[in-house]
């Protein structure tokens, strides 16, 4: 039973950015549904949604940055698949960051409960 140089966990580098996007998506959608069902004040609900979106954007940025650093730094000195996975991970994390901007920013300006 030998241990791998590049453990299977490295595979998670690839979807990481979009996992954050998915959690953000579901959280914002749920917060909107709960806010409308519970009759929250519109201003307060919008603030909650914007705060959540900003939080997730920050998280997404951080993740992209870390994966990129990993790709350009440590992953270079590991066996080839590490660099390859980190490269794909950087691309997907950046795509996820762009997707977060594209998905959440336009929506936050429109009507909340109609």
């Amino acid at each position: 039973m030998s241990r791998s140089d590049v453990p299977p966990l490295y595979l998670l580098l690839i979807p990481l950015g979009f996992v954050i996007w998915s959690i953000a998506f579901v959280t914002l959608y749920a917060a909107n549904a709960i806010g409308c069902a519970f009759g929250w004040d519109m201003g307060a609900q919008r603030m909650v949604l914007i705060a959540l979106a900003l939080g997730f954007l920050a998280l997404s940025t951080l993740a992209s940055f870390r994966i990129w650093r990993f790709w350009t730094g440590r992953a270079r000195h590991q066996p080839a698949p590490a660099a390859s996975l980190a490269q794909i991970g950087t691309y997907t994390a950046l795509s996820a960051l762009a997707a977060s901007l594209g998905t959440f920013v336009p929506g936050l300006a429109v009507s909340l409960c109609i």
Partner: peptide, 9 residues
């Protein structure tokens, strides 16, 4: 609600 539709759109 339109806000949720905006995300999906």
């Amino acid at each position: 609600p339109h806000l949720a539709l905006a995300f999906f759109s």
